[in-house]
């Protein structure tokens, strides 16, 4: 219980700090917000009026509190470029991002964990070496390059899959695989080493001495123990997926949060960039918190004492 409480407090503190950081970083990035709203022919006086209306001339800390106040009362504001309601944009693009992110997250664990187990059981065989080589490649290849490569191969040359777009299942395949590649590679390696470490423990010998079959010992007991580090690092995998989503969504034209955020930053659309950055931060922090909860639930040594 104390562990849970401390993790929750930790999460709230991170959220508060990152909201300030995001707010300041966007203001410090330079550029003129009025350029998003007013035509190039607008006079300096017009621009000044707009800045006054938007509160851009107030001290930054005051702008921060005004903004947070509105945010907490549910007013997310409008986009500077097309005046769209940010709350609407979040729902619409957020759904797309969650589909892509969830698909990648599932791939990471549904592919990574079984491959890691296979490599550990077939330790030092051709299968193990093949899986390990693939995982090195998965970690080494930058995902933007992997994205371009896969578009070239599967869309242009083989014509098996569409190169971009949303939101049919066929269009989800390539971006989800590219987004999952690095996390899967890391999960394979981690699963393998966690399995091998537990295979060497004394209690494995005890279970064998009790007559349990290898598949029972490995598939149930060793796996159950190996799951602890895998779950505890699931938070990192979530962070990775959220971060890489910016690149992958842009390359594959997947209209998610990342794509909107990149466009907003390029156009100095402060309210949108700010809020979408915050959403990504919340997702990462919340993901880590959930991973901590999972770690707590999976580990009897933390549950009761």
């Amino acid at each position: 219980m104390r562990y849970l409480a401390s993790r929750t407090v930790y999460m709230l503190v991170i959220l508060a700090i990152s909201s300030v950081a995001v707010f300041y970083a966007i203001r410090l990035s330079g550029g003129d917000a009025t350029a998003a709203r007013l035509p190039a022919s607008a006079t300096e006086a017009d621009r000044e009026t707009l800045r006054e209306v938007l509160g851009l001339n107030d001290p930054i800390y005051q702008q921060y509190f005004t903004y947070m106040g509105r945010l907490l009362s549910g007013d997310l504001g409008n986009s500077l470029t097309n005046n769209a309601l940010i709350s609407k944009m979040v729902v619409e693009h957020g759904r797309n991002s969650i589909i892509l992110g969830a698909a990648a997250f599932l791939l990471v664990f549904l592919v990574g964990v079984p491959l890691g187990m296979l490599a550990s059981v077939r330790r030092n065989t051709l299968a193990d070496q093949g899986i390990m080589s693939l995982s090195v490649a998965g970690m080494a290849v930058p995902n933007f390059w992997l994205a371009l490569l896969s578009i070239w191969l599967f869309a242009s040359v083989l014509r098996w899959l569409p190169s971009a777009g949303c939101c049919e299942p066929r269009q989800l395949i390539l971006p989800a695989i590219v987004l999952a590649a690095e996390g899967t590679a890391l999960t394979v390696r981690m699963t393998r080493s966690a399995m091998l470490e537990n295979l060497d423990s004394d209690w494995v010998r005890t279970l064998r001495a009790g007559g349990l079959s290898e598949s029972r010992v490995i598939g149930k007991h060793v796996f159950r123990n190996a799951l602890i580090p895998i779950i505890s690092l699931a938070g990192l995998r979530i962070g990775q997926i959220v971060g890489y989503a910016l690149i992958v969504e842009v390359i594959f034209g997947w209209p998610g949060l990342g794509q909107v955020l990149v466009n907003a930053v390029l156009r100095r659309d402060y309210p949108v960039a700010q809020f979408f950055s915050l959403v990504l931060v919340v997702m990462v922090v919340l993901g880590n918190w959930l991973a901590d909860l999972g770690y707590l639930a999976a580990n009897p040594r933390l549950r009761k004492t």
Partner: peptide, 20 residues
């Protein structure tokens, strides 16, 4: 194993699966 012939080991602290 475990039925006709069974065995106990030296270190009880590490000889039981901690997860169950």
């Amino acid at each position: 194993r475990g039925d006709d012939i069974s065995m106990i080991f030296q270190d009880p602290l590490t000889s039981l699966d901690p997860m169950f």
